[in-house]
Computed example of a mutant assay.
Amino acid sequence: MDRDSVPQEITTLVGREVYTNTGVFVGEVEDIRLDLDRQSVTGLALHELNRELFSAKANQARGVIVPYRWVQAVGDVVVVNDIVERLQASNEPADEEEEDEVTA
């Protein structure tokens, strides 16, 4: 789906399940991270996480924020790319200032 094709309320994302492009459940959208100066979505705050994907630090947190640029498609569910590979490759907890990483 082309994100620019039809304007939609960003609140419609809340409650949608998030899956990787290979079909692995990641979590559920709880909130949206916005850049008000640029009037754009920068991240999706997820809860109800797939605990097998995230580090112990993220498992103790309420949820994680996934960078919105990872979103490939939005429909009945949200599809994100390469999150599993990024999480499995990283042995260190994510740094909140790193935009390329999932943050807790």
Rank of each mutant, 00 (worst) to 15 (best):
M1F: 12
D2H: 11
R3P: 15
R3M: 14
R3W: 13
R3K: 13
R3C: 10
D4K: 14
S5M: 13
S5W: 08
S5V: 07
P7R: 02
Q8C: 13
Q8S: 14
I10F: 14
I10G: 10
T11V: 14
T11M: 15
T12L: 12
G15Q: 06
G15F: 03
G15A: 09
R16L: 13
E17K: 15
E17C: 06
Y19F: 15
T20G: 09
T20A: 07
T20N: 11
N21R: 14
N21W: 06
T22R: 14
T22V: 12
G23C: 05
G23A: 01
G23M: 04
V24C: 07
V24A: 11
F25Y: 15
V26C: 09
V26N: 08
V26Q: 08
G27T: 06
G27Y: 07
G27L: 07
E28Y: 03
V29D: 08
E30F: 15
R33Q: 12
L34W: 05
L34G: 00
L36Y: 12
D37M: 09
D37T: 12
R38D: 13
Q39V: 07
S40D: 11
S40A: 15
S40L: 15
L44M: 09
A45K: 08
L46E: 06
H47M: 08
E48I: 04
E48F: 10
L49C: 10
N50F: 03
R51G: 12
E52K: 11
E52M: 01
L53N: 03
L53H: 02
L53M: 11
L53F: 00
S55K: 07
S55D: 12
A58M: 02
N59E: 04
A61K: 02
R62Y: 10
R62L: 12
G63D: 01
G63C: 02
I65N: 07
I65E: 10
I65F: 06
I65L: 10
V66R: 00
V66A: 02
P67K: 00
P67I: 06
Y68T: 11
Y68S: 14
R69C: 09
R69D: 14
R69H: 13
W70H: 12
W70I: 03
V71N: 01
V71E: 03
Q72K: 05
Q72G: 00
V74F: 06
V74S: 10
G75I: 00
G75Y: 01
D76C: 10
D76E: 15
D76R: 14
D76W: 09
V79Q: 05
V80R: 01
V80T: 04
V80N: 03
V80Y: 00
N81A: 04
I83K: 01
V84D: 08
V84T: 13
E85F: 05
E85C: 01
E85L: 11
L87D: 00
Q88A: 06
Q88K: 06
A89N: 11
N91M: 10
P93K: 01
A94H: 05
A94L: 04
D95K: 04
D95H: 02
E96V: 11
E99R: 14
D100F: 08
D100P: 05
E101I: 00
E101P: 02
V102T: 13
T103F: 01
A104G: 13
A104M: 04
